[in-house]
């Protein structure tokens, strides 16, 4: 297969395993490109992409912007803080106004789950979901799986543990879908108040004990506690959380299992992971960031190929 089965990247749920494989293979080539003396190719010279961030973001926004620039696309940036949304404009109106300026693709982060899906039905543009509330964050899941593949090879049969706030995490949900589609086994670990009740119904096992879970896994993905999404107190204190679910050097050294450590960032050092662990050789956190650019280049490149070809003549 050399073309995606979808016209937008709304979530991992809509992708076929072949799509994920194609994105990975394409990202391999872009990873080589971004390590050249001149880290840029002219493929998307005639494409304009709008990055619409209705929610704060640093690395995802930078990563998308860099990916777009490495492909020679023209880039428009928009952040909710400076927008007319405050004046009462609807999402569709905002986006249609931007598209009227001849924009070909929209990368959007939005606090409402399903915002990207909604937009893809209402406007005539390719949509890339850069995170919609607590729903999905597909490019993060792709770059996590891609980084695991780099260290461990084929994902099939690999044991991946996700630790932390599973309920409020779009990274967790997208990761679960992606890993399962690629044949990996997924377990989650975290405070019972932050594990969705129905999680086992999608084939994910729960291991409440962090030590046991770490002894089992090939890869541990340590999520951030998303205090901004929690409306009530789900656990007594950050200190309590860190004692129960934080990954420390002592814990790491006492476990006889060479697992790889991932973290989607931003890190709360000393909460879910200590500084020593985050900077250890087992951690591939900075590789994840580098791979993020290659993965996003692959996604944008493959979707750009599906932009109405008649427009370009």
């Amino acid at each position: 297969m050399d073309s995606l089965s979808v016209d937008h990247l709304l979530g991992i749920k809509q992708l076929q395993p072949e799509d994920i494989d194609l994105i990975f293979r394409t990202a391999d080539h872009f990873k080589e490109v971004i390590n050249r003396p001149i880290r840029k190719v002219p493929s998307l010279r005639d494409i304009t992409i709008a990055n619409l961030f209705f929610e704060n973001s640093t690395r995802t926004k930078l990563s998308f912007e860099l990916a777009e620039k490495r492909l020679s696309a023209d880039v428009l940036n928009f952040s909710a803080g400076q927008s007319s949304l405050k004046k009462g404009e609807t999402l569709i109106d905002t986006v249609n106004n931007i598209l009227a300026m001849k924009v070909d693709m929209v990368v959007m982060r939005h606090p409402m789950p399903g915002a990207a899906m909604f937009l893809s039905r209402e406007v005539n543009s390719r949509i890339v979901n850069a995170g919609d509330g607590a729903h999905e964050h597909p490019t993060q899941a792709l770059l996590d799986s891609y980084s695991i593949r780099e260290v461990h090879g084929d994902l099939a049969g690999k044991k991946v543990l996700i630790v932390g706030d599973i309920t409020h995490s779009r990274v967790a949900l997208s990761n679960i879908f992606c890993l399962q589609k690629m044949g990996a086994e997924v377990k989650v670990c975290g405070p019972p108040t932050l594990i969705p009740k129905y999680i086992e119904s999608i084939g994910v096992k729960v291991e409440p004990n962090l030590r046991k879970a770490l002894e089992w896994c090939d890869v541990a993905n340590m999520l951030r506690i998303q205090l901004e999404r929690q409306r009530i107190q789900y656990f007594p204190s950050l200190r309590e959380y860190s004692l129960q679910y934080g990954l420390t050097k002592q814990l790491l050294d006492s476990i006889d299992n060479e697992f790889t450590i991932l973290h989607p960032g931003p890190i709360n050092r000393g909460v879910e992971i200590t500084t020593e662990v985050a900077d250890s050789e087992r951690s591939i956190i900075l590789d994840q960031v580098e791979n993020g650019v290659a993965i996003r280049m692959a996604v944008i490149y493959l979707l750009a190929d599906k932009i109405d070809k008649r427009n370009s003549s």
């Binding site: 050399d2 493929s43 493959l302 750009a304 370009s312």
Partner: peptide, 14 residues
């Protein structure tokens, strides 16, 4: 591939 002048202009993806 990424330097070709027929990206999005040919039927079969590159």
């Amino acid at each position: 591939t990424f330097h070709r002048d027929d990206f999005r202009r040919r039927e079969k993806p590159l």
